[in-house]
């Protein structure tokens, strides 16, 4: 557990950038993504503090994936400000990319390459020092060391997802973005993933997850929010939430906000 359990290297504050609150890793204000009159995100604002686990729930088409794509620098926003670790999305995309890891329902793995080759490829893109050692450690931690020279094609979905976690952690990111990571996993694999995420959270990594899986999302989160039709309509610390009634609350909020537009 060495690699995963060690504290992530806390990013040095960006020089010359005034941080409103040094403790917040993600700062989003007035974020909008629109195409013509169709809005995927409308004026979203939120913050995620260092070491916090925020889960954003929402029905299909709420804008969850769009949000993740914007935060992970894959798609530019139409308006608003986003900064990650004090770096602005527009100006310092590569510095942000160095600090974030993404685990999605897609594994981002090449099936015609072996587990080790996949990690080596991504490691080279991040220009990581001492890559071979890093890869060995990570593979051992996700329990794939014995299979490291096997093609990913031969892996089960759960094994692929574990390798995908190793891929996301390869460059030791301080911020993790999770996009429906439970999709396609069986019961056992899901539980393993939850275990991993809990450990990552306990080791001061900042985590933002979007999902429609209420139970698992709520279990791990410090704070939850609900995104409906591109707006955040609910946000609360998970300690203030009655978990048995959350499902009802969730449906009420989704219902209310989809009717009146």
């Amino acid at each position: 557990m060495e690699q995963i359990c060690k504290q992530p290297t806390v990013a040095e504050p960006a020089s010359g950038v005034v941080q409103a609150e040094p403790d917040s890793v993600i700062q989003v204000s007035g974020l909008t993504k629109a195409f013509g009159h169709h809005h995927a995100l409308r004026q979203i604002s939120f913050e995620v503090r260092r070491g916090e686990f925020l889960t954003i729930f929402g029905p299909n088409g709420a804008g969850k994936t769009t949000l993740i794509r914007i935060l992970s620098t894959m798609t530019p926003p139409s308006g608003g400000d986003v900064s990650i670790d004090g770096f602005s999305l527009a100006d310092d995309a590569n510095k942000i990319r160095n600090r974030l890891g993404v685990i999605a329902h897609q594994t981002y793995l090449y099936e015609t390459l072996t587990a080790a080759e996949n990690l080596r490829f991504y490691g080279r893109l991040y220009d990581l020092p001492d890559l071979n050692n890093r890869i060995e450690k990570l593979l051992a931690e996700v329990g794939l060391r014995a299979r490291q020279n096997d093609l990913v094609r031969t892996f089960s979905r759960g094994m692929q997802q574990r390798l995908s976690i190793a891929r996301a952690l390869l460059h030791d990111p301080s911020l993790l973005l999770l996009d429906e990571p439970y999709t396609g996993l069986d019961q056992h694999a899901s539980e393993m993933l939850s275990g991993w995420l809990a450990r990552l959270r306990d080791n001061a990594r900042t985590i933002l997850m979007v999902t429609h899986d209420l139970e698992r999302g709520l279990d791990l989160a410090d704070r939850v929010a609900i995104l409906v039709k591109g707006k955040i309509v609910f946000s609360k610390a998970s300690s203030d939430i009655d978990k048995s009634k959350f499902q009802k609350t969730y449906y009420e909020f989704v219902e209310q906000n989809t009717r009146h537009t």
Partner: peptide, 16 residues
């Protein structure tokens, strides 16, 4: 082959 498992997105996440 790049987009099959979302690998292109994986590449785009890297600082390049």
């Amino acid at each position: 082959y790049e987009v099959d498992k979302g690998c292109l997105q994986g590449i785009m996440l890297a600082p390049i």
